[in-house]
Design a protein around this nucleic acid. Structure first.
Lengths: 224, 224, 224, 224
DNA sequence: GATGAATGAGCGTTCATTCAT
DNA sequence: TATGAATGAACGCTCATTCAT
C-alpha cells in the first residue's frame, strides 16, 4: 500500500496549503504592523481575500493563528542561528556570529517575523503564554549547549548545572531587548550597526568573563 | 494667617487619598494577576468596593490608572537601586548590589509592582507605549552613568558615546527577562537564588570584560 | 456572458435589503415616537428582532441610521411636492397644491417620516446638523425657483437675488411650524383641515402680496 | 402684620437671588454655546463657581434650569415685541416694527436668549415640550390679537375663529426659521439685514393679502 | 469546502442626581 | 445652606465566533 495520494487529492492538498499560507501571510503583516490585539479576524480575512468563515475553517481561532506564526518565526530564527553555530570553529565565535546574524539577518530581513516574536505581549491568553515560554526554553536550550561546551573548553565549572541555562536566558534577554529597540526605535543605520555590535560584545563578554578562571584575565583565545 | 487647611478639609484630603489608594491597590492586584487587558474597570471598582463612577472620579480613564501604577513602580525601583549604588564603594560593587536588590527586594517584596513594570505589553495605547519608553530611558540613563564611571576608572573608551547606553539596555534586557522568569516560573527558592546570582554575575561580567579588553575592535576580528 | 447575479446571490441580496428595511422601519417608528436621543440602539435591535451586532453590520452607527431615514423622508417629500408643481398650471397654483399635499398627503399618510424630518433637533452631532442644513437648502432651492418664476410672471423684481431664497425659507418656516402642530397637537380633523388651508393661504398670500406691490421699499417707510 | 422681612432675612434673600442669577447666567452661556444636551451640570456649576449640590439646591434638575431660562427669554421677547406694538399706530405698523425689533434687537442684542428659545430641540423631556408649546401659545395669542384687530379694521372675517391663531403661528414659524438662519448661518451684516427685511415683508404681506377683500388691492394704509 | 450574515456578551465611559457632612 | 464625593444605570459600539446555506 503506497502512501501517495491520488492526483485530485494532491491538488486539493496543494490548494489547501496555499490558502493557509495566504491567510498566514496576511495575518503576519497585520500583526506586525498593528499588533495582534488591534487586528481583527475580519481584517485578516479581507487582506487574505477570503471570508471570515474560511479563516476559521483553517485555524481554530485567532490565537492559533498567532501561535502558528510564532512557531514559524521561531523555526526560522533557530535555523539562522544554528547555521552560524555550525559554521563557527569555536563556541565563542559561534555566539558572535549568531549574534550578528540575529540583528543583520533575522531582524533586518525578516522584520515582521521578528516583531511577532519579540513585540507581542506575553499575555494574549494562556496558549500564547505557554508558547512564549516554550520559545524561551527552546532557544535557551540551544544556547546553553553552546555555553556548556564553552565552559568545558575553558575548564570552568558552573555554580549549578542550571547556570548555563540561566546564562542562555540572560543572553536572550539582551537580544529580546535590543531587538525591540532595533525594530522600534527610529535609528540611523550607523547607530543600528553600532548597537548590534555592542550588544553582541556584551553577551560574549559576559560569558567569557564568567568562564575565565582568574579575575580579569584574558580567556584562552583572547590572550595577550 | 496660616495656610493650613481647616480640620474637616484635612480629613477630606486624607479620605480622598485613602480612596485613591484603595482603588490603585485593587487595580494593582488585578492587573498583576490577570493583566491589564483582561481586567475591566468594573472589576477594579468591585475589588475596591466602590462604584465605577468613583473610579472615574479619581482617574481619568483606565489607562491613567495603569500609568499611575507604572510610575509608582518605577519610582520604587529607582529608589531601591539608587540606594544600593549610593551605599556601594565602587561602580562594580554598586552594580552587583543593585542587581541583587532587584531580585531579592524588588521582585520578591513588590512582586505585583514588578509584574506591572515587566509584564504589561508595550502597546496598551500610545500613552503607555511612551511611558514604557520613558521607563527604559530613565533606567538606562541611571545605569549608563554607572557604566561611564566604571569605564573611566578602567581607563577604557567605548566604541561610541552611545555605547554605555547600549550596555545599560543590555543589562536591563537581562533583568527584564530574568524578572519575568523569576516572577512567572514555579521555582524552588534555591534555584531562584541561584538564578539571581548568575544573572548578576553575567551582567557585571559583561561590563567588566568589555572595559578590560583592548580598544573596541570587534571581538571576532581580534582573534589570533 | 450576462452580468446578472446567480440565483442564490440574488436571494441573498433580497434578504439583505429586507433586513435593512426591517431595521430602518423599526428605527423610524421608535425615533418618531420617542425621539432619536431617547431611543437606544438596543431598542431598535429589539424592535427589529435582530441583535445589536446586526444593526451595526448594516449601519455604521446610530447617526447613520437617522441620516438614512432623514434622506428617505426628504426624498419622499420632494417627490410629493414636485408632482404637485408639475401638475399645476401656474406657479401660484403649484404652491397651493403643494401646500395642500404637504399636509394632506405627507403629514397625514407619512406621519413618521414627517416627524423625523421636522421634529429632530438640529444638533445630534455634526453630520445631522449638516444634513438638516442641506434639507433646508434643497427644499428652499426647489421653492425659490417657483417663486422666481412667479416673480417674473408678475413682472416683479426682488430686493436682491437672494430674496426669493429668503421667501422660500419663510414658507418652509411656516410649513415646519404648522407641521409640528399638525403632528403634535391633539386636533379634530376639522380644525386640522382648516389649519392646513389657512397656512397654505398665508404662504401664497405672502408671496402674492410681495410680487404685487411696488418695488421693494420697506413697507413702513412707504406710508403716506 | 407687615410683610417686610427683617434685615438679615433681606440680605439672605438678596444673596439667594444673586446665587440664582449667577447659576442661570452660567447655564445660559453654556446652553447657548454648546447646546443643552452637551452641557453637563458640572460644567454649569464650575462656570458659576459653585458646587453641583448648590445648583441642585436652587434648581430641581437640569431641565428646570433650562425651563427657567426659557421663561426669561420668552418674557424678554414679549416685552420687546409688546413695546413695539404699543408704540405703533396701526396693527400693521405694529407687526412691521415688532418684526424688525425681533431681528435687530432680540436676535442681535440677546443672541444667547434667542438661541435658547429657538435652537433647543422640542424634545428634551416632557416638561420642555410643554414649555415650548406654551411659548408658542403665548406668542401666538399675543399675535393673534393684533391680527384680529387688523381683520376687524379691514372688515374681514376669517374662515374660522381659530384662523387668526393659525396665522399667528405661521408668522411665528417664519420668525423661528429665520431666527435660526440669522443666528446660525455665517452671514455678512448686509445679507442679515436684507434677510430680516424680506422676512418681515413676507409676514406682513401674508396677512395683508388675506385680509384684503378684493384681489391684489392695496390695503388702506399702504395705498398709492 | 467556502461564505458572510448573525450573534451577544462585554467593554470603557458619561452624567444626572443624591446625601452625609 | 453649601459642599463635592459617590452612585449606578445607561449608552454606543466592537469583535471573536458560529452556522445555515
Amino acid at each position: 500500500m503506497t502512501e501517495e495520494l491520488s492526483r485530485p487529492k494532491l491538488r486539493r492538498e496543494r490548494e489547501r496549503e496555499h490558502r493557509c499560507r495566504t491567510i498566514l501571510d496576511a495575518a503576519e503583516t497585520l500583526f506586525a504592523d498593528q499588533g495582534f490585539l488591534k487586528t481583527s479576524v475580519d481584517q485578516v480575512a479581507d487582506a487574505a481575500e477570503v471570508s471570515v468563515g474560511t479563516v476559521y475553517f483553517y485555524f481554530k481561532n485567532k490565537e492559533t493563528l498567532l501561535a502558528k506564526l510564532f512557531d514559524e518565526s521561531l523555526f526560522l530564527l533557530r535555523s539562522i542561528l544554528g547555521q552560524e553555530f555550525e559554521t563557527a570553529r569555536t563556541p565563542v565565535q559561534g555566539m558572535e556570529m549568531a549574534g550578528k546574524a540575529f540583528f543583520d539577518k533575522f531582524c533586518t530581513q525578516y522584520t515582521r517575523k521578528a516583531l511577532i516574536l519579540f513585540r507581542e505581549a506575553p499575555s494574549h491568553g494562556k496558549k500564547m503564554a505557554d508558547r512564549r515560554k516554550k520559545m524561551s526554553e527552546t532557544l535557551s536550550t540551544d544556547l546553553s549547549q553552546a555555553i556548556d561546551r564553552l565552559g568545558e573548553e575553558a575548564g570552568y565549572s558552573f555554580r549549578s548545572p542550571a547556570s548555563s541555562v540561566v546564562f542562555a536566558n540572560c543572553i536572550l534577554g539582551v537580544y529580546e531587548k535590543m531587538a525591540f529597540h532595533f525594530l522600534t526605535d527610529d535609528l540611523r543605520p550607523g547607530s543600528r550597526k553600532a548597537m548590534a555590535m555592542d550588544a553582541v560584545e556584551f553577551t560574549v563578554g559576559g560569558i567569557r568573563q564568567i568562564t575565565a578562571s582568574g579575575p580579569h584575565q584574558a580567556v584562552s583565545e583572547a590572550g595577550p
